[in-house]
């Protein structure tokens, strides 16, 4: 998000989601099928289980500029 947008109060955090393929990822698919809306700044990485999410992936995401990370499974 650009600095101008932020100044105008339109800032939206870049969010990286680690989603379990069996539940949350399927839930995100369902959100799509149901045509729900959420900010386009959310991006999802598919994992086989939330247990696969190494804390080092989260540190890396934050280091690389993600404003927030969610892990769901």
């Amino acid at each position: 998000m650009s600095i101008e947008n932020e100044a105008q109060g339109n800032w939206q955090p870049n969010i990286i989601g680690f989603c379990c393929r069996w539940c949350t990822y399927a839930g995100a698919d369902l959100a799509g099928v149901s045509r729900m809306n959420y900010p386009a700044s959310v991006r999802i990485i598919r994992v086989p289980c939330s247990g696969r999410v190494n804390p080092q992936f989260i540190i890396r995401a934050l280091q690389q500029g993600a404003d927030a990370v969610f892990v769901s499974g």
């Binding site: 870049n14 990286i16 991006r43 990485i45 994992v47 086989p48 247990g51 696969r52 999410v53 190494n54 804390p55 992936f57 890396r60 995401a61 690389q64 500029g65 993600a66």
Partner: peptide
């Protein structure tokens, strides 16, 4: 794979290398 500190265990199809590169690409 997460319990293993050095990453001696890795998951085929969802490797540490793959997931780190996905994080980098998305950020």
């Amino acid at each position: 794979t997460v319990a293993c500190r050095p990453g001696a265990l890795n998951l085929k199809g969802f490797t540490n290398e793959q997931l780190l590169s996905e994080v980098d690409a998305l950020c």
